[in-house]
Amino acid sequence: MSLAVNEQELIARLKAGDNNAFKHLISAYHLKLVIVARAIVGDVFAEDVAQEAWASIYKAIGHFEGRASLSTWMIQIVSNEAKSRLRREKRHSSFGDIDEVRPEVAAENFDGNGHWVNPPAHWDINTPELMLQEDQLRHCIEHTLTILPENQKAVFLLRDVEQRDLDDIAELLSLSEANVRVILHRARLQLMKTINHYQETGEC
């Protein structure tokens, strides 16, 4: 079930107390809530925070008014739970204050004037549809998504999967917008690097 397509039906089932619908919601969103929690409160407490968020969601779903999408609402809840846990534990965010040095394409790809000396190579598999059909490439991308640093994973999830605005992401993760931009660019560059390597070598 796609949340986007069937969201109204899903919400109606959730409000009616349909446990299978709630399990479906957990299946679709638990890992995403953990990713957001981990980015705020760190690895040790993330699962615990996500579990608390689920309890809050279960308790409050009957009063969900639909002013925001279901995913927006759930992500806000886990963000609040994680920030609250962070305050209780009196710990600093694992990545709240990253350096703002811009991510870079390797300097050796450019001459002294900043023009390409090693320009991007042609990709034979050049559309997302074709890339998704290539099993080995899928495997490489899945692996890259797994090993992305937690901050990059969370920002990529919120921006490119959930399509949240950058200022929302900054608020949700307690980051500056400048940091969100840097982190997002790093994640996308890492994915591009993986795909580029596969296009050149046929390997991850």
Partner: peptide, 8 residues
């Protein structure tokens, strides 16, 4: 395209 494929 990397962004789109990664997101999917």
């Amino acid at each position: 395209r990397s962004r789109q494929t990664g997101a999917t």
